[in-house]
Design a binder for these strands. Structure first.
Lengths: 231, 231
DNA sequence: TCGAGGAATTTGGTCAAACCAATGTTATAA
DNA sequence: TTATAACATTGGTTTGACCAAATTCCTCGA
């Protein structure tokens, strides 16, 4: 069904496409409201609503008498830098794992306070798939990843979400490395599933501190398994 | 510093205070734009900008011909959260702070287990400079930064070290934003110094769990100060 | 020639009145 | 009672005007 979009949002997108999508560098000025109104064939009022939208999203800076300027978002570029740092093909497996411990523990805490019913549903599905996957390593891998990513997404913090996706490759590697152990000793795989389930319950019940503690323990245990698998 | 706030943001706050601060339950309808314009003695245009702000922040739902309704909030949000959303100059500031909480808490934990005498010496110097800087904001800023960076370096985890340097700009911004409050109330600045000192002691004595807990509290407090400084 | 000061212009901020479009309400007729 | 048409309400958009801040540009004096 064709959703009817609000005009000011459509305009905001057009503005981004025309001016913020690379054609205008940070610090440069946009055309005046009156010019934009003519260009897009709408009233100044409507253009102003679109500009407000961009301002509230931190994309531009509006100054009375001055004009609208593309914001030099330290933070936006910071965000990209952070991703770059983490992305760097790092052979530093254990350092990465420490980063994951930091990120995922805090994610669990935040998720417990913010997860929507839809977020929780995703986590339940991942849990369920994992339980079904005792004989299927690939399904297990995917479900395991889905669970960890699902928690990050439940924080609704865009930086955490991007970072966890950046770390996906590393997580996959780690899981594969430890899978041999897990499948040799099925009870251990069961332990992992139980840990996930407990983390889920803590998040679903809104117990942030407990969720964080459990996730810390979980990743510490992964580290131990990784050490074993390398012996 | 008497910042001149944009009218529509001020109005958005008033609307929250009058209607979303508990007096109106989720699902209930706000007065019409025309009524609100009369009530706050501004034009309908201005009221509309304020309502847009609330809509963009997901607090209300505006339906043509229907009216504006308080949204059933996805995330469990207390009043402070709401204020935060509306006030945030850059929506990513608080996301960044959450990232810092994750990184610096884990850093403190790791530092407590790995800090060398040289690492500890650096932290002591930063602490000392901070104590000396009650009258010198710039020195205080640098000492504050040095302390946080020093902890990351004491982890000897290259990823953490790179990340904290990437976040330096953001940290500086946050410290500056909260400095006004700190210097208005010197006892509060003393609190900050004491928090740093306690974190140092926990690290120096090898108590990782305590160091982590203290750092978490410290950054949570920074967040609260940041919220205050924006009101 | 250069710089300071100030007037004129540009640009965003606010207001008012009108009309359109979608929704909600009420009255009417089957 | 129900379906429908007329009306009222409410948000959406346009226009034009004026205010306030910032910028631009010109003049004048050193």
């Amino acid at each position: 069904m064709a959703e009817k979009k609000k005009t000011y949002l459509v305009l905001a997108d057009k503005l981004i496409e025309c001016y913020l999508g690379g054609n205008l560098k940070p610090g440069e000025r946009l055309p005046s409201e009156r010019e934009l109104a003519v260009q897009f064939n709408v009233s100044r009022t409507t253009i102003r609503e679109a500009l407000r939208t961009l301002e509230l999203n931190g994309l531009i800076d509006i100054r009375q008498g001055g004009g609208s300027y593309v914001k030099v978002s330290d933070i936006q570029s910071n965000k990209e830098e952070i991703i770059t740092v983490v992305k760097a093909e790092n052979p530093l497996v254990f350092e990465m794992l420490e980063l994951r411990r930091a990120l995922e523990a805090e994610s669990s805490f935040l998720a417990a306070n913010r997860a929507t019913p839809a977020d929780l549903e995703k986590l339940r599905i991942a849990l369920h798939n994992m339980a079904l996957s005792k004989q299927d390593p690939e399904l297990g891998l995917k479900a395991d990843l889905d669970f960890h990513i699902g928690i990050a997404e439940a924080t609704h913090n865009s930086i955490f979400i991007e970072l966890i996706h950046t770390l996906k490759g590393h997580m996959e590697e780690t899981i594969r490395a430890t899978q041999n152990h897990r499948f040799k000793d099925l009870s251990r795989y069961g332990d992992t599933i139980n840990e996930h389930r407990e983390i889920y319950l803590a998040i679903a019940s809104g117990n942030g501190d407990k969720a964080k503690e459990l996730m810390e323990g979980h990743i510490t245990k992964i580290r131990a398994e990784l050490v074993e698998s390398m012996i």
